[in-house]
Amino acid sequence: MTHVMLKGLTRRFDDVIAVNNLNLEVESGELIAFLGPSGCGKTTTLRMITGLLLPSEGDVQFDGKSMVAVPTEKRGAVMVFQKHLLFPTMDVARNVGFGLKMAGISKKEIDRRVSEMLELVHLPGFETRRPHELSGGQQQRIALARALIVRPNVLLLDEPLANLDANLRLEMRELIRTIQREMNITSIFVTHDQEEAVMLADRIALMFDGVLQQFDVPKAFYERPNSAEVAHFFRNDNFLAGTRRGDCVETGLGSLAILPDHVTQPDGKVVVTVRPEDIYLAPTSDENLIHVKVLAQVYMGTYKQVQLDVDGNKWLAHGPADLDIREGDTIPIQLPKTHIWLLPPANGK
């Protein structure tokens, strides 16, 4: 149980800024996802937390104590890498017991805790197996056991599910979540998959190009994105320029009513957005009714995805699977005011 604080954390490689002025606070016992496209600085941040990489500027604090001068092996921040998971020259027992051996624990105690830990990751009796005899999923679980056995201050996972097939991912996700809750270990994992982050994390830190975009609970990334870029990363490309005046927004398609207490953008130029699944393709009232042209439709099995022309912008909307519309039709749709969110105006518009 460790409280982790990153203060103005910056890392430069020659002229490239990999991580730029990152400020972030992780509560003890929390499970955090660093989310972003590859090369956004999330793994670099992880390495700075472990001490494998030193920050160019800023501070990493565990429970209020600066860790910058503390060498990796003394931090108790254990990292599980994506590749090269297990020590190939050691059997499973020696792999899992490695951290305890380094801590000078007795052989007998190590053996006991190793078998306990193998039980926890559902691989009892695997002590004498060699790494190359194990499947990818089993290796992953052994690597997790090896990290957890030392009861780390912080557990860091680099793309823990990336190399697993769909079924194993689900299983591994459950396992990580359960054990993390049970042992109450402050954990941070890196992923580029937003679904994975949403399903697993208590809070998500979304990073682009080394800059933290938004740090919030998963729900917020759907309901209250900070910017059009954040909305886009969470599969929302429905944008419409407008001007907010009090409790309505003037747009090219007329005035839209909003909930003034729900939105945070001040009066002036804004971008209106509604998530595809929140648009009513079968309107229930006259409020915020707009008429738009159907550009295309795709049957998705459980729902129908419709592409719409909203004042020159391409929008997506999800309707019932049996929705009866044709391409080229102009249909009325409703933008429920409870689901209208306002983004800051895009640069240069």
Binding site: T50, E73, V78, F81, F87, F98
Partner: peptide, 11 residues
Amino acid sequence: ELEDTARTLGA
């Protein structure tokens, strides 16, 4: 990676 892993595990 293996060396880094060992470092974080306290070696």
